[in-house]
Design a protein around this nucleic acid. Structure first.
Length: 152
DNA sequence: GCCAACGTTGGC
DNA sequence: GCCAACGTTGGC
């Protein structure tokens, strides 16, 4: 089993929105970055655990845990001209973009903020903290996973 | 709102 | 293939 961190803007889709979905499950659409796509398409497996990260908000940080419940399939929002994430280069016969389904596991008892994560030398290799990192999906090692959740 | 750090696009 | 222009992300 592997571990991941996935970013989402709480104003668009936060941890409470995931909780409120039917089956507490939602497809992770809208990823339009090849590196992030490759991780969803090739590496994320059912049962993988996810740190749910809130970005672009008052207190950016990790707010909950989710898990992969469906492995990669075409991101159909790319086919819809009316969708914000429409991409004319992608079509159902040869999709460019893929997504997985994720299910709510739990909220953390508190937000583990980016500010706090930055103070931990144990996390110096965490992709989230590397200079200039803007990936919306990134791998987390088992050691990093355990360290972060021990902060809760 | 600002801006650094990218990734993408497209002219050449 | 190079690289300038542009768009996006996301912290602050």
């Amino acid at each position: 089993m592997r571990y991941w961190l996935m970013k989402s803007e709480p104003e668009t889709f936060g941890i409470d929105d995931l909780y409120a979905r039917p089956q507490q499950t939602e497809h992770w659409d809208g990823v339009r970055n090849y590196q992030a796509r490759n991780m969803m398409r090739d590496e994320m497996k059912i049962g993988d655990q996810i740190l749910f990260y809130h970005s672009n908000c008052d207190e950016p940080g990790i707010v909950g845990i989710a898990e992969v419940v469906r492995e990669s399939y075409p991101d159909f929002t790319a086919f819809d001209p009316d969708d914000k994430h429409f991409d004319p280069k992608s079509n159902p016969d040869k999709p460019t973009w893929f997504m997985v389904d994720v299910k709510f596991v739990r909220k953390l008892s508190r937000t583990i903020s980016l500010r706090e994560l930055k103070t931990k030398s144990e996390l110096s290799e965490l992709a989230l903290l590397r200079r200039g990192n803007r990936l919306s999906i990134m791998p987390v090692s088992v050691e990093q996973w355990a360290f972060i959740l021990a902060l809760e």
